[in-house]
Amino acid sequence: MAHRLLLICLLMIYKVSSKDYWNVNYSLSHMCALKNSSVIINCNYTYPDGHQIMKVFWTKGPVRDVEPPDLSEDPEYSQRLQYLGDKQKNCTMRLSHVTKKDEHKYYFRFITDKPGGKYTGRSGVTLTVTDLQVESPERVTEGDSVRLTCKSSCALTDRATFIWYRNSQPLTERRDRNNILLLQSVRREDAGRCSCATHLHLS
């Protein structure tokens, strides 16, 4: 008489508590900011129970085989970087007066009181810095309608309203969310150098 051996496999699925692992969560992986503006990088972090946070800082990288530098101690950043987070779960920071030299990938790092208690958020945030340019027709005839477009090399992360100028004088008093300005039936006296600027609404 043959005996059948019934194997019962038990699949154990464990729910990992957010308090049991190391993680840094950045709200965005890429940000585009206007030259000379301020950018806010939002993030939060978690770590195992029983650890006490001793140090938190932002760095840029990647840096291998050495302790990553704290940007708040770097003369190029110390006056412009402001840590808005805490030593619990928020790691948001603000970087002011950004320039093309600030185009890097930024990482948040924290250190706890336990051996091996060091962690850097792996994905990081890539910052691109752009400037505004006005796109206009090459030739304009008197009486034409002219379409001007305020453009940047990447899509701005923060919501913006646009302000237009001709020869450094405001063309319109109102701020418009549309980056296009349409001039109807232009006249000879409308000629001049047009430029645009933005007013950013930080999210």
Rank of each mutant, 00 (worst) to 15 (best):
Y77E: 13
S78Y: 11
S78H: 14
S78M: 15
S78L: 13
S78G: 07
S78F: 13
S78Q: 15
R80V: 11
R80Y: 14
L81P: 01
L84R: 12
L84D: 10
K87V: 08
Q88L: 09
Q88F: 06
K89W: 09
N90K: 07
N90H: 07
N90D: 15
R94G: 01
H97Y: 12
V98Y: 05
V98I: 08
T99N: 02
T99Q: 01
K101M: 13
D102P: 03
D102G: 03
E103C: 04
K105R: 15
F108S: 05
R109E: 08
F110E: 01
I111K: 06
I111A: 04
I111E: 08
I111F: 07
T112G: 07
D113R: 01
D113K: 03
D113N: 14
P115L: 06
G116P: 05
G117S: 08
G117F: 08
K118G: 15
K118H: 10
T120W: 07
G121I: 06
R122W: 05
S123Q: 09
S123K: 10
G124Q: 07
L127D: 01
D131Y: 10
L132G: 04
Q133I: 08
S136L: 10
S136Y: 12
P137F: 02
P137T: 01
P137C: 03
P137W: 04
E138Q: 11
E138R: 09
R139I: 09
V140Y: 03
E142A: 12
D144T: 05
S145C: 03
V146D: 12
V146H: 04
R147C: 11
R147H: 11
R147E: 12
K151I: 09
S153P: 00
A155H: 12
T157E: 00
D158T: 03
D158W: 06
R159Q: 13
F162R: 08
F162K: 07
I163M: 06
I163Y: 02
W164N: 02
W164I: 00
R166T: 00
N167P: 02
N167W: 01
N167V: 05
N167R: 11
N167K: 09
S168K: 14
S168W: 01
Q169F: 03
P170A: 10
P170Q: 10
L171S: 11
T172S: 13
T172I: 11
E173A: 14
R174F: 11
D176G: 10
N178F: 04
N179I: 00
N179V: 00
I180C: 10
L181W: 04
L181F: 10
L182Y: 07
L183F: 05
R187V: 05
E189V: 04
A191D: 01
S195P: 06
S195Q: 08
H199N: 12
H199V: 10
